[in-house]
């Protein structure tokens, strides 16, 4: 709801429910107003979310920044709500966005501020019709996240260590293959 308000350029969203939840006590940005059109009714409101940046990974893209993304998912809303959109794509080619399958949708390039090709760029998460979630890697991350020392070792190995995306893939893909 709040992202939709951000996408629509309006200052806040009216949200059904919430009143009676302790969330209203711990979130000082959630407020209660009298519905101006039905004053006996109270309604929760939340400020619009308009992220400074959205980072999205597309299935395909063309050099004008037009993106093909999965039809199911909330990436399009996130893109609409964000002030700056940085996209990566499995493939960038002039004719990559000419045809769509039923489970894909087009995001117009006017939303997109920066674009880079990044094959396997969603790893360790799945990318529709390309590759599944790398469950073994996610388990490795979960194990590492239990304490600061192993967490920093994970960051050194997979985030800070590889010089670039290609080096990252050289590190993680053989690990995935042996599981």
């Amino acid at each position: 709801m709040a992202l939709q308000a951000g996408a629509s350029g309006v200052p806040f969203a009216a949200v059904p429910g919430l009143i009676g939840s302790d969330l209203m006590a711990v979130r000082d940005d959630f407020r209660i107003i009298d519905d101006p059109f039905a004053p006996e009714r109270r309604v929760a409101i939340a400020p619009a979310i308009a992220p400074a940046f959205a980072l999205v990974h597309a299935l395909r893209a063309d050099p004008d920044g037009n993106l093909i993304i999965p039809a199911s998912g909330d990436d399009a809303l996130l893109i609409q709500a964000s002030r700056t959109v940085i996209a990566t794509a499995e493939e960038v080619a002039p004719d990559a966005t000419r045809t769509l399958t039923a489970d894909e949708r087009l995001v117009p390039g006017v939303y997109v501020d920066a674009l880079a090709p990044a094959p396997q760029g969603a790893h360790p998460l799945a990318c529709q019709s390309h590759y599944p979630t790398d469950a073994a890697h996610i388990r490795r991350y979960l194990d590492a996240a239990h304490d600061p020392q192993s967490f920093h070792a994970y960051l050194d190995a997979y985030v800070y260590g590889p010089a670039d995306h290609a080096a990252y893939l050289e590190r993680v893909l053989p690990e995935a293959a042996v599981v």
Partner: peptide, 15 residues
């Protein structure tokens, strides 16, 4: 310990 969502709602709230 924390009411994420309540079973019953105060009056004047659409439920």
């Amino acid at each position: 310990d924390f009411v994420t969502s309540p079973g019953v709602t105060p009056p004047g709230v659409a439920r």
